[in-house]
Write a protein that binds this DNA or RNA. Structure first.
Length: 491
RNA sequence: GGCGCAUUCGUCUAGGGGUCUAGGACGUCGCCCUCUCACGGCGGUAACACGGGUUCGAAUCCCGUAUGCGCUACCA
């Protein structure tokens, strides 16, 4: 069953570094954190890892928070800024030095760089030779007191590193897999490794759910947790999300950030659902399910261990599912900016709602929906190419004139009456209904492929219908005359 | 190079020794519905990377090989 029930209160955290937009991989990590929290109770903490001040910026932090909020994620504590906790990190480093778990390193960057290059030239991995580990404690203290600059390195203990990973099982790294890594830079700032571990300890994190790219880092963190005298949390390292090139999904490959999908007209619920299923399965062939349902069903043992390729097609399908099932009012809210982009901002609300309702089960994105709805309000100019078959058949113009008269006479004006009128006319003229329907759709909407005709007519109303039919007749006459002058068609 | 992780239809996955002639979903193809486009319904296509073991029996366990990916910073 769920292993976390034995481990005390579940405290999870999502800890993005604000160096860019929220990547869908990060979003998925956040989702799994929230899902575990939803399932097990406890707390979900948001922490911003901005220890790399050169690459971090406040705007990005806000951006990430708003992307998480848009996705519907709710955290219980935070956001905490790691940069505000550097005193605590330094204090922890000092304690580690005092305990002999860490030591000062006076090696210059130039020297280390040389050593690294030499190692690389030989084809070896660079491994810090522990030069400064040999410096006697008294000397070290004296040099520091004298103002010599130094970094602080963790003294890796000499044991095999073991930890439990909820996704991959028992993990084991040889002792020499990692060297004495830096805890505090020579400018006194803490590195990521120190900060995460100290923060995870202080925030009493029980489960660290993060990307697989951190798997080898965990070999550093586990001994660090132990040196800090703290219990080691449970880990779950998630496989990466790949592009179709099987490389880590990145912007240059297409959309990779949450905000890009938002701009593409993806509903947050759809993205959440899709992402949750990319690496986790609730079983029983369930696919479309709410955040609450997923929370109820979520267990880490159903997390997948192999990487997943991001499939835009399936996301689009799922988005379509959500668009068609969302209550109209909510859908209109989400679609507002897309409708505005189609010039439909000022349109009569009731009619807009009716048109959207008519098309919501055919759209795969909000932009797509707005496009489909547009012909109800803003007939596009007739395109001669698209109308060629109507222009070349003189009976079409005649039929349209008859149809216009019948439409106008329908009373009460509505979908059923309009349909009856058209079908009656078709019967009288001995043609199939479609023969009238297609040019009529063109007359009213300007598109050959679009809204269902009778709904379109009903929604437009008697007056607009008449106007557009007349407009189309005029167009047919003009086009027919132009064609007649270049070559005879009608007899 | 070293260390690590991964490998079921094109894609996401179910599967945790016999119920697998491998199930579902997206995509794709065909048919039905139909005023176009969709939706919906029905049906088809398509996968256990390879080689050795273990076992009466392996997609499922073990070991290799191959391939892919990740990490290998005083980045996170």
């Amino acid at each position: 069953m769920t292993d976390h029930t034995l481990a005390g209160p579940v405290r999870v955290r999502f800890a993005p570094s604000p160096t860019g937009y929220l990547h869908v991989g990060g979003a998925r990590t956040a989702i799994y954190n929230e899902l575990l929290r939803l399932n097990a109770g406890g707390a979900f903490i948001l922490r911003i890892e901005d220890t790399d001040r050169e690459r971090s910026d406040e705007a990005m932090t806000r951006q990430i928070c708003s992307a998480l909020e848009w996705l519907g994620l709710r955290w219980d504590e935070g956001p905490f800024l790691q940069s505000e906790r550097v005193d605590r990190h330094r204090e922890a480093a000092a304690e580690l030095i005092a305990n002999g778990k860490a030591y000062r390193c006076f090696c210059s960057l130039e020297l280390l760089d040389e050593q690294r290059k030499a190692a690389e030239a030989k084809g070896d991995a660079f491994f810090y030779p522990r030069t400064c580990f040999a410096v006697a404690r008294g000397d070290s203290d004296a040099r520091a007191a004298a103002g010599e600059t130094f970094a602080v390195r963790f003294r890796m203990p000499g044991e095999v590193i073991r930890f439990q990973d909820l996704v991959r099982g028992a993990m084991e790294f040889p002792r020499d897999a990692v060297d004495d890594f830096i805890l505090l830079r020579s400018d006194g700032s803490p590195t990521y490794h120190l900060s995460v571990c100290v923060d995870d300890v202080d925030m009493r994190i029980s489960h660290v759910i993060r990307g697989e790219d951190h798997l080898t880092n965990t070999a550093k963190h586990v001994p660090l947790f132990q040196a800090l005298g703290s219990p080691v949390p449970m880990f779950a390292h998630l496989p990466l999300i790949l592009g179709t090139d099987k490389k880590r999904l990145s912007k240059r490959f297409g959309a990779a950030s949450v905000e890009e999908f938002r701009e593409q007209g993806i509903l947050p619920e759809a993205l959440y659902n899709y992402l949750a299923l990319l690496g986790w399965s609730p079983g029983h062939d369930r696919e479309v399910l709410s955040r609450e349902e997923m929370g109820r069903l979520f267990t880490t043992d159903r997390l997948n261990s192999s990487p997943a390729i991001f499939d835009h097609e399936k996301l689009a399908w799922m988005n379509g599912q959500y668009i068609s099932h969302l209550p109209l009012a909510e859908l209109l809210e989400h679609a507002a900016s897309f409708l505005a982009a189609e010039g439909l901002a000022g349109v009569e609300k009731a009619r807009l709602g009716a048109a959207v309702d008519l098309h919501k089960n055919r759209a795969r994105s909000l932009g797509h929906l707005a496009q489909m709805v547009r012909p109800y309000f803003e007939p596009i100019a007739y395109d001669e190419e698209a109308c060629k078959e109507f222009v070349s058949d003189p009976s079409v113009a005649e039929s349209m004139a008859f149809l216009r008269v019948r439409f106008v006479a329908v009373d009460p004006f509505g979908k059923d009456g309009v349909e009856a009128a058209l079908r009656a006319l078709a019967t009288e003229r001995g043609v199939k209904a479609g023969v009238l329907i297609h040019p009529a759709r063109m007359a009213l909407s300007g598109v050959a492929v679009g809204p269902p005709l009778f709904d379109l007519v009903a929604l437009m109303g008697r007056q607009a219908t008449e106007e557009h039919m007349l407009r189309f007749e005029g167009f047919l006459r003009a086009a027919g005359a132009a064609q007649g002058s270049t070559g005879p068609t009608a007899k």
